[in-house]
Design a protein around this nucleic acid. Structure first.
Length: 124
DNA sequence: ACCTTGACGGTTC
DNA sequence: GGAACCGCCAAGG
């Protein structure tokens, strides 16, 4: 398994983290999209939970690029002005992603995964 | 074993 | 737009 795996980590979370790591620099994905790609259709909320674990586990901020995951409307899911909101917005802008207010234009920046790439990289 | 929590999503009004 | 409502269900207490 990948190095991010930890003896206490549950399998669904690992699948989610693995999928999130595939989002390319400069692109974003929605929670639902990650759930689908992780073989967990309809479980977008679980993706949020899994991403919330990243800092709590003391992992490096960017070991799993959680900041590239936003909601299906293209908006950052943290309350505007909160610390995490500002951090996520900054990380996105650092990758040349345009964030207006709390919103990213999905038609310009949403990750369109290549099927062959997914089949090659995902091991579950 | 039961109850609550979630960085969600879609439908509807 | 946006707000209310409901479906989702693994994880952690």
């Amino acid at each position: 398994m990948s190095k991010i795996t930890n003896h206490s980590i549950k399998t669904h979370y690992t699948q989610i983290w693995q999928t999130v790591q595939l989002i390319p620099h400069g692109k974003v994905a929605s929670y639902g999209q990650i759930a689908d790609l992780s073989g967990l259709p309809g479980r977008a909320r679980l993706v949020g939970k899994a991403l919330g674990k990243v800092p709590k586990l003391g992992w490096q901020e960017k070991s799993v690029p959680w900041y590239r995951v936003i909601n299906s409307q293209g908006k950052i899911s943290f309350p505007m002005g909160s610390d995490y909101f500002e951090k996520q917005k900054q990380f996105l802008q650092d990758e040349q992603i345009v964030v207006i207010g709390d919103k990213v234009k999905l038609s310009d920046f949403q990750w369109q995964p290549d099927l062959a790439e997914l089949l090659f990289k995902l091991t579950f």
